[in-house]
């Protein structure tokens, strides 16, 4: 940490570089959203507005699905909120690190808090590197701009999208999050938390269906993590101290 004298510019570029594997998964998802939005009678502008303003893929897909079935507007809004409830957990967890930023940067930073940003932030703090605003925004803006461009391309050229299965594109985000969870394996109670969360998610997926399995699995895993006996309390304090300053 102290050896690292990276300028904000270096940090920003590092954030961009880290987002590159993510983009391979994000871009097809954005294009898929754009294509489905237009199929559900959204204009290109509405699809773009949704991607730019809500910026949460799974909930956007749920949203356009419900638009097609003529359910009450408040129910659509509620569903979008429910699918995004995991972001409350992200916010609570990563907020312990973002709290060191000035308030204006926090307000901007939280807008870009998506699965991938959360994953990379946790990976970074787990290895003891502090979260810098420039690093965060390098990754955040790259993912955001890619999301908007891919939404646009999907909405306009959706019918030309090749079969994603052949190129493995439909499974890349699965591999990505699998790898992220593996790199977090030194965290306390990693195995029981991952196993219980996987079990909850799979059961939820088979019974109530996607995307609600995320909420079910998340709560099972967090619950298990909260109630398992803490391992080596002093390491925990050193690793996840959120009150002390850790500036370089």
């Amino acid at each position: 940490m102290s050896a690292q004298q990276a300028t904000p510019r270096d940090q920003f570029l590092e954030g961009i570089a880290l987002s590159l594997p993510v983009l391979v998964g994000v871009a097809p998802f954005g294009a898929l959203f754009g294509m489905l939005a237009v199929e559900h009678n959204f204009s290109v502008g509405e699809a773009m507005f949704m991607s730019a303003f809500i910026y949460a893929g799974a909930s956007q897909l749920v949203g356009i699905e419900l638009f097609g079935s003529h359910v009450a507007p408040w129910l659509i809004v509620l569903s979008i909120f429910a699918v995004n409830f995991r972001l409350v957990l992200y916010s609570a967890a990563v907020g312990r690190y973002l709290a060191r930023w000035p308030i204006g940067k926090q307000i901007i930073g939280y807008f870009f808090l998506v699965d991938q940003l959360f994953a990379e932030s946790e990976r970074r703090t787990s290895s003891g590197v502090p979260l810098h605003f420039a690093w965060y925004m390098g990754m955040a803006l790259t993912v955001y701009v890619t999301w908007l461009i891919s939404t646009y391309l999907g909405a306009v050229f959706g019918q030309f999208i090749p079969d994603p299965h052949v190129f493995g594109i439909d499974f890349l985000l699965t591999i990505y999050f699998f790898c992220i969870v593996l790199t977090l394996r030194t965290r306390h109670n990693w195995f029981p938390i991952a196993a219980s969360s996987a079990l909850g998610a799979i059961l939820g997926y088979k019974t109530i269906g996607s995307p609600w399995h995320v909420t079910v699995g998340a709560f099972v895993g967090v619950f298990v993590g909260a109630f398992l006996p803490p391992v080596a309390a002093k390491d925990e304090a050193a690793e996840h101290d959120h009150t002390g300053e850790r500036n370089p």
Partner: peptide, 19 residues
């Protein structure tokens, strides 16, 4: 605190497990 520390593994696992 322990619950919050469990969030990354708990939530990110749900994003790949069914697939």
């Amino acid at each position: 605190e322990a619950g919050l520390n469990a969030v990354p593994v708990a939530v990110l696992t749900t994003l790949f497990a069914p697939a």
